[in-house]
Design a protein around this nucleic acid. Structure first.
Lengths: 138, 138
DNA sequence: TAATGCATTGCAACTATGTTGCAAAATAAG
DNA sequence: CTTATTTTGCAACATAGTTGCAATGCATTA
């Protein structure tokens, strides 16, 4: 059984506030990823810009969402799977960025392949970002 | 035999100017990747901020450098291999970002593994960014 | 449920980052 | 050397992101 919005926040030892509820809800409802700008435009003047920045930071710290690197210099965020905990992310799945519609997909089924690094290099995180055209934009 | 700075610019049908020579030279000398900020701080007031932006854009368009996505919202650029041509990049090698010293390595030897996408998805580009500790920072 | 302490928000101001139009200067071609 | 074209620098603007602080809201305990 899934946890509700409030339970997720409480589990992360965060007080339940309007902005956190609303923003977390946006992530749950959107199956893709969201950028700061998406949230700002969808919430309008409801919340201060600064509040959104701080809420996103808090969520990342608490392991509720994670960042997705993109080549177009726009950081996006997506919900973490249950395995993520505060300060310790486990999101080695592949992200897909559609060049047409701009949607970011989390391909949870596909895990990032293990990369054999040169001697002396140790990895803590692997991000795979595939760009192209998604099934809706063919 | 390697091409010189001027030859590389001419091959890409770009006029040879001070800023282009200097910036391209920085990429050749640095074996890693450079961010806009790196270039701006190293050149000082020699070139206008806008010139650096436009030079980097031009280089990307002409296939001289390519962007590297990072999770920390700082776009970096690195020299393309010879295979890259204008508007058509072939840089499916792995990038390594050291959390300690911040250096970005291009691991040319290692090619990005082919990712099996869901039905209807087509890929034009695959970026693999491994974060961790490099051999100098162990 | 009211009072208290602590976390969170909103505001203001600021810094950094990136873009556009246009005139001046540099480059390439003849 | 002159001309046409490209590139640069400047100014102004637009967007992103950060910080300090007072005011508000949340959680807790009585």
């Amino acid at each position: 059984m899934k946890f509700g919005i409030n339970e997720t926040l409480k589990k992360s030892q965060l007080s339940v506030t309007d902005s956190r509820k609303k923003i977390l809800e946006m992530f749950v409802k959107s199956n893709g990823a969201l950028a700061h700008a998406d949230i700002e435009s969808q919430t309008g003047v409801e919340f201060d810009r600064v509040t959104i920045y701080r809420t996103l930071q808090t969520f990342v710290e608490k392991g509720i969402i994670h960042t997705i690197p993109t080549a177009d210099n726009a950081v996006r965020y997506a919900l973490c799977k249950d395995a993520c905990s505060a300060g310790h992310h486990h999101d080695d799945h592949v992200h897909f960025l559609c060049d047409e519609c701009g949607t970011t997909y989390c391909l949870d089924q596909i895990t990032a392949p293990q990369v054999l690094l040169p001697k002396g290099f140790t990895s803590t995180r692997t991000d795979v970002v595939v760009s192209g055209t998604c099934s809706k934009c063919v």
